[in-house]
Design a protein around this nucleic acid. Sequence first.
DNA 1: TTTGATTTATTAACACTGTTAATTATATTT
DNA 2: AAATATAATTAACAGTGTTAATAAATCAAA
Lengths: 211, 211
Amino acid sequence: MGIQERKRKHKEDLKQLILDAAKKLFMKDGYEATSIRKIAAEIEFSPTTIYLYYKDKAEISHALHQEGFKILGQQLSILLVIEDPFERLKAMGKVYMQFALEHGDFYELMFIMKDPLQTIHDCADNHWEEGQQAFRLLLSGIQACQEAGYFRSMDPETFSLVVWSTMHGLCALQLKGHLDMVVAHKNILQDVDNVLQHTFETFIKMLEKLR
Amino acid sequence: MGIQERKRKHKEDLKQLILDAAKKLFMKDGYEATSIRKIAAEIEFSPTTIYLYYKDKAEISHALHQEGFKILGQQLSILLVIEDPFERLKAMGKVYMQFALEHGDFYELMFIMKDPLQTIHDCADNHWEEGQQAFRLLLSGIQACQEAGYFRSMDPETFSLVVWSTMHGLCALQLKGHLDMVVAHKNILQDVDNVLQHTFETFIKMLEKLR
DNA sequence: TTTGATTTATTAACACTGTTAATTATATTT
DNA sequence: AAATATAATTAACAGTGTTAATAAATCAAA
């Protein structure tokens, strides 16, 4: 069978094969629904084989979270061409938000769930490379803004945390369905889909006033 | 036995008894660890008895989430005595944050998890009374600030969403351990416990500039 | 008071979950 | 070819939420 041939072929990088299968199921049904047994069935292996390549499910979640950062990082890196620092910061916010909406499951793994960080905390490194890299990108964006006259009186690191918090709060509330439940049946004029966009624009307007 | 006597005594409001047991376990071990079976064991009933009083685990989560809003609402209502609107808003933020830190499990149930909202979405009401009430409190606080000269150019509802997002983002990132992982090993000077406080103060400073 | 109906609680079971120990099959090396 | 090391599997443990069928307790009517 062609399936078995491909199986033999990829037997060496089974770890990657497992991850691909996990990714596929995860993007279709979410993290909770992606069980070890289903991943194993997907690649036609026994469930316990997974444990020869990944310590536990948390380690798989960590690998998936890294995949998510690859996507986000790639999408953010494009924005470095934007010269104007505030426009760049604005675009970063837009991309971050769009990523959260389009890849909700990834976002959850990257910024909401504890499991992936648990793996990091075990592995002695104890430092979150992906997260810190993303944060440095935001920080440098904000420092560039400061050089252009924005947020002069603010400590850049702390201010970056505020900005990140706002964006994360917005995305998290939207993803988990809490935003809709508060604005629904009130603002009948604007459809629910654009509440997020509108709130983001207000945040930008707010930042714009802080020069 | 005294236990059995009390059992008989409370048999009519078994629903409340179940909730109390759930609350107790939940506050000790968190939501995931609080299984139907453990709740049943706590009150010395069969696991299936729970289902005579609650449709499913999500419905219990919803009841617990309501308990959380009772605590938060009570803590926030005290602040209404503060005359100065901006000071009141600031205090609201402080209380919200302290609640999130002290009652992390409740906070998760109220603003992060989907399960409690799921129950609402089923129950035809389709409107989140607790959440909307809390939001109205924030909204009125911000409107009071506007009358005092703050945030004049902003739409109060949308601006409230921004403020809520920032506070939620901050609390959520802290609760899930993402905040520490970004600032750790960088700012060695300030201990990790006060990063949150410091970021909050910067946010307040930011709001203060928007008059 | 005893029978019958109704409510309440229980047992047993289903279909899952992550994870581990013991065992078999497959490669690799001597 | 035999011995060793690696890889994969089966069986099992200890849980999970949830449902159907059964038993116990309560209450109403004869």
